[in-house]
């Protein structure tokens, strides 16, 4: 991921850019309603499902770790919140509990990975399976609808013409972006991901920073579970799990279009929007629904692959 020659980077940038441009021009011509404001808002709302956890995942990946369990934690947080609402517990308390659950499970991940030094993949596959199971154990794998006005409000209200879910996406982006790119802590995340020993020698509290990055992930999970509850008018089993690949791809998409070839929050957001935009645009353009995924898949993959050529270990073999 780190070794890439500079001269190639700019060429890759052109490829990405031209794919972007061609796709958007095609969609605009083939789907007249695409540029309609409401439609663009729909794109952003569907991007929110992917972008918010992807920003959290980016933060975790910055420090050289990984997380797969978020798909389960989103479901678990949602289902617990919905059960609490059913039990007529006041909304603020429900929200607080949701946040607490999301963050504390991520901190368990962090403990296993940082303190016990277990491989992040193995750890989070385990917690993913456990939380996915627990989620369905609580919901008995049924759909649960929500009757509370708070979540309906998020879905149907807007502020200055922009739906609240989009505002949530914007706010989370601003928070995570400023945290990662504008503060010392964010820079230290990058330092740890780039060279842990250097970071340690420079006196950075590596373990604490890693815990913090998982905390950010927990926060993002909590927010996106609110969006899920609001937009789906309730809880759908394993809803987040179906977006797992898109989330991971958005992060890599962002990484591949960044100048230094590293994970960035802006890049991740662009990646998520690109994926959502493709799905929406192609549907509007009349591409039959089951081929959309395929076209979408190919385009995203072409962008990611062309941009990450030479990202593997085997680059060492270049003479």
């Amino acid at each position: 991921m780190k070794k890439i020659s500079i001269s190639k980077t700019s060429k890759k940038g052109y490829i990405t850019f031209s794919i972007f441009a061609v796709v958007i021009v095609y969609i605009i011509f083939a789907a007249p309603g695409f540029l309609h404001f409401d439609n663009l808002m729909n794109v952003l709302i569907s991007a929110a499902f992917v972008a918010i956890p992807a920003m959290g995942l980016s933060t975790v990946m910055l420090t050289g770790s990984f997380d797969l369990s978020f798909v389960g934690i989103i479901g678990l947080t949602s289902v617990i919140m919905i059960r609490m609402i059913e039990a007529a517990i006041p909304i603020p308390l429900v929200l607080l509990c949701g946040l607490g659950i999301a963050i504390s499970i991520e901190l368990i991940n962090a403990f296993l990975i940082v303190k016990l030094k277990i491989h992040p993949w193995l750890t989070t596959i385990a917690t993913m399976l456990a939380t996915l199971g627990l989620e369905k154990a609580i919901s008995k794998a049924y759909f649960l609808t929500i009757s509370d006005g708070f979540f309906g409000g998020i879905r149907f209200n807007s502020f200055i013409g922009i739906p609240l879910s989009v505002w949530i996406l914007i706010i989370v982006f601003v928070i995570v972006y400023s945290f990662v790119h504008k503060t010392i802590i964010g820079l230290h995340f990058y330092a740890i991901g780039g060279n842990e020993i250097t970071a340690k020698k420079a006196g950075i509290k590596v373990d604490l920073m890693r815990f913090l990055s998982f905390g950010v992930m927990g926060f993002c999970i909590w927010v996106v579970s609110l969006v899920y509850l609001a937009q789906l008018s309730g809880y759908t089993p394993e809803a987040a799990y179906t977006n797992l690949n898109e989330v991971i791809l958005s992060v890599f998409f962002g990484m591949s279009i960044s100048k230094r070839n590293i994970v960035t929050i802006t890049g991740t957001l662009i990646g998520a929007i690109f994926v959502a935009l493709l799905a929406n645009g192609l549907a509007l353009a009349g591409v039959s629904s089951y081929w959309i995924k395929l076209v979408e898949g190919f385009l995203v993959v072409i962008v990611v692959i062309t941009n990450s050529l030479g990202s593997g270990e085997l680059v060492q073999l270049e003479k």
């Binding site: 991921m1 690949n245 991971i248 791809l249 890599f252 089951y290 081929w291 995924k293 395929l294 076209v295 979408e296 898949g297 190919f298 995203v300 993959v301 990611v304 692959i305 990450s308 050529l309 030479g310 990202s311 593997g312 270990e313 085997l314 680059v315 270049e318």
Partner: peptide, 25 residues
């Protein structure tokens, strides 16, 4: 992975993504 020097994670998730799309398609 071996010819284009791609990171295996990226390469296999790309194949996964396309493969899933084909399965659905």
């Amino acid at each position: 992975i071996s010819k284009a020097n791609l990171n295996p994670f990226i390469a296999t998730i790309a194949i996964l993504f396309i493969g899933n799309s084909i399965e659905k398609g």
